[in-house]
Design a protein around this nucleic acid. Structure first.
Lengths: 235, 235
DNA sequence: CTTGTTCATTTACATAGGTTGATAAGGCTA
DNA sequence: TAGCCTTATCAACCTATGTAAATGAACAAG
């Protein structure tokens, strides 16, 4: 489902227009039939993504649309720097980001990549209110929708349907996904993890240098190179 | 907070009485002042644990009390077998359990230990409705409260306060804890993971054979033995 | 007390993966 | 075209950890 959706979103990339502090998009300010205000396609994409988790009432969708602020970031810019305390989360309309942490010896670990249709956030730091141990960096030019966390949290308490969306989202993206990842890190060797990564994220390898993939797998670029060589020789 | 609470719970262990299908506990069927029905201490312990996450209305607490069924399991018995589809979760009033998975080569990985005050469940299997890849085994005689998941889910949809408890619970025990675990597995070596385990779970080492701890750390008992030796030599 | 069982330790050897530095191989940019 | 980054590969060596088997220690059962 996600893969298909990402494919659909990518179609929009060609007619985007970048500007420094916010992007403009083909926008229908009035729906032809109802005469009501309509939303930019980025917000529609976000709401569609959310509704795939749990149906949202029109009022809830309207409130969410109000909270979502279009933001552009260029490749190399940071959505969040390590040590900063985050106040917002985001939706990726186009582009690619990584969340990574750096240990005492300066080694980076790429915890997750955020492609189109995902919600980059330093979740733990948002929940605890503490500075984030993770940084979130744009690996490509990005069109984001930025959402203030406190306002989202407020809306969460007011909207029953949003609570259920939130529970489903946490279940899918944290419980199920993180459990899979934990077991993989303990029981699978780096070769298996690499092959699993390729299968689970088709198209992502082409957008990433290998050292970023190696870091995500928890190995060095040297070792990933060995593994790739060995896979080619075996096949 | 958790540690203190577990300490308090352990006091009750001496006056528990084990029976095959359910346990009896010192129970005040009527509160002296109000004359209202009161709950067994195990249910009170569970509600106290839950209220530490989010305040629950008396009605919600009463509904939860109705759902909670006292269950005994002896050491070595399974709360859930691998491959079975779970229908319930539990609360640990006394005892200790482990959730583990077995890979194709038969190697076990102890994902988590459940001591007093925790909620053992094959969360992913409950959410997906699929057979569980994890088994949950009693490492000591256990007094549990068993809760039907479908009924809990129903109550979750009806109770606003329970939704917020549930979100807080997921955040604390899945998001924050699993992120810490993931980073630890990638960036810390086994010695650091062992020392961190001892700090984070005081008193648990004494209740577990080392091979269970080794499995939780993702290493062999042989390697844990080496690490322990080295720690003793260094100190 | 003796025996068997379980668990921790130890030894010798094997392997996955890290470290360092050299060497390509592409792409920009002047 | 020449030079300069960045990135991937490779080689040589090192280390943490796995594997398998032997030994020891604690302890329960007869």
């Amino acid at each position: 489902m996600w893969v298909l959706f990402i494919g659909k979103l990518l179609v929009h990339k060609s007619n985007r227009q970048l500007s420094r502090t916010g992007y403009t998009l083909p926008m229908r300010y009035e729906d032809k039939k109802t005469g009501m205000a309509a939303w930019p396609t980025s917000i529609i994409a976000m709401l569609d993504t959310m509704k795939a988790y749990f149906p949202l009432k029109p009022e809830t969708q309207a409130s969410l649309a109000t909270l979502a602020k279009p933001t552009n970031l260029a490749k190399g810019e940071y959505f969040l720097k390590s040590g900063d305390t985050p106040t917002s989360l985001a939706f990726v309309y186009s582009g690619l980001l990584r969340a990574f942490t750096t240990d005492v010896e300066g080694r980076e670990y790429n915890k997750i990549f955020f492609a189109e249709g995902s919600f980059p956030a330093a979740m733990v730091a948002l929940l605890t209110g503490e500075p984030s141990r993770f940084a979130i960096e744009c690996l490509e030019d990005c069109q984001l929708l930025e959402i203030n966390h406190a306002a989202y949290r407020q809306l969460l308490h007011e909207s029953d349907d949003l609570k259920l969306f939130h529970i489903r989202y946490l279940e899918q993206n944290w419980i199920i996904e993180k459990e899979r990842r934990e077991v993989e890190l303990v029981q699978a060797d780096a070769t298996d993890r690499y092959l699993a990564f390729l299968q689970r994220h088709p198209g992502l390898q082409e957008r990433l240098p290998q050292y970023h993939i190696a870091s995500h797998l928890g190995i060095t670029p040297t070792q990933l190179s060995r593994i790739r060589k060995q896979i080619l020789e075996t096949a």
